[in-house]
Design a protein around this nucleic acid. Structure first.
Lengths: 223, 223
DNA sequence: TCTTGGGTGGCATTAAGTGTCAAGGAGTTA
DNA sequence: TAACTCCTTGACACTTAATGCCACCCAAGA
């Protein structure tokens, strides 16, 4: 009785749908791990999963999506974490937590075991997948920027800071993720994130409290 | 005699090649300005330019490339500028100049007149083109990181700083470019760049002189 | 004039992605 | 049970991007 939970609100169609999705992802990842992304065709994937090609494109908008799809709600997760942080928290700390959430979702987000690492490595070394990944990051940057602006009481259309802060946070994310991937998962994502934000914090916090005007255009160091 | 310069070292084939390339770019940009990127097919472009489709793909690797191709050597330009800056210059100043070069190349890089702006706007609002653009930025980040590491005497495989600095610089570039595009070219790219680096400078310079160790993992602000 | 080499056009082909429609299964109502 | 509806699927056709292949043309040199 413990193993069977016939949730009335979860229809069978939805479970079936979930099943097909996992089946497709499973097949795609397994094939690509061996032959690489480009060598695997959608026809091979659907043949392995046992569904039609048309169905594949009902679940994923593109061949890249079957690999990168799990990134979709990572942006909202990051943004939600940023929004959930205390309002009086310095930007660097709030953003650090947001990036930490993203790294956590990335490190064990695909599913458990070491497959998350292999997927990340596949993404980072395949141009087409990396492009999609960066495309997602572009969206996250927009989302983080509006949230950062709200926190600081700035206008994202006027002040440069929100978008710069979001970009810096994503630079940290990118750096940490790459390092984690290159180390084969040996390095600790959280510690890496802390180190990255230790570098970025001066800009994030000093600029944040400075307010709407970012100061003279000459910069802090002479020309 | 002034108008005719039959350079002996420049063969006619090369000039012809240049001509076809320009013709193709011209046709593509003109069509896309009206109908948008996705609505224009390669067949339309080649029909307008008067060459075969096969020839199109001898000049450009993809449909996106005909628009984004001018970005190709922008990365090397940025990196070259960074390398050319005095060694004792603070990172924030050197990187600011690198970004300024990139903005200059972008602002009047396609060709003169206001077409550069329209191309940038086209890229920023078209997902497929934005993806290619970000793909290029990914390459620039790698290049800038190794150069930044060289300047600071750091190991890009060990220290987080080089890649973070490169990412921060590109965040500035992204922010400035977007602002410039959104303002319809009204805002001054150089001034925008200065403002962005005024925000980033504390992190770029303080972290840079700190050396190989980025300090404790707890960050500058409490948790 | 002959030849050689880079560039080109046309054709066939692969693969991604989309529109359309008929068929089938699950859930609902009578 | 029968009928009806909603959702999902499979099959087919189609468009388009992108690549390989081969014959052809034209400029440059012997």
């Amino acid at each position: 009785m413990a193993g069977v939970s016939p949730r009335p609100e979860v229809t069978m169609a939805q479970r079936k749908r979930q099943l097909v999705s996992t089946e497709l992802t499973e097949a795609a990842l397994q094939l690509m791990a061996v032959e690489g992304f480009d060598a695997v065709t959608v026809d091979e994937i659907v043949a392995t999963a046992g569904v039609s090609k048309r169905t594949f494109f009902r679940y994923f908008a593109s061949k890249e999506d079957v690999v990168v799809q799990f990134l979709a709600d990572m942006g909202t997760g990051m943004c939600a974490e940023l929004a959930a942080r205390p309002a009086d928290e310095p930007p660097s700390v709030a953003l650090r937590h947001a990036v930490w959430v993203a790294m956590a979702a990335c490190a064990d987000g695909v599913d458990h075991s070491g497959r998350a690492l292999r997927v990340v490595q596949l993404i980072l070394r395949t141009p087409a997948l990396r492009a999609r990944f960066l495309e997602h990051q572009g969206q996250w940057r927009d989302d983080l920027a509006v949230e950062a602006a709200r926190r600081q009481g700035l206008d994202p259309e006027v002040d440069l800071y929100p978008r710069l802060a979001a970009g810096a946070a994503l630079a940290a994310f990118d750096t940490v993720l790459r390092r984690w991937s290159d180390s084969g998962g040996a390095e600790d994502p959280a510690a890496l994130t802390d180190r990255a934000f230790a570098v970025l914090a001066p800009a994030l916090d000093e600029a944040g409290v400075r307010g709407p005007s970012e100061g003279p255009s000459g910069g802090t160091s002479g020309d």
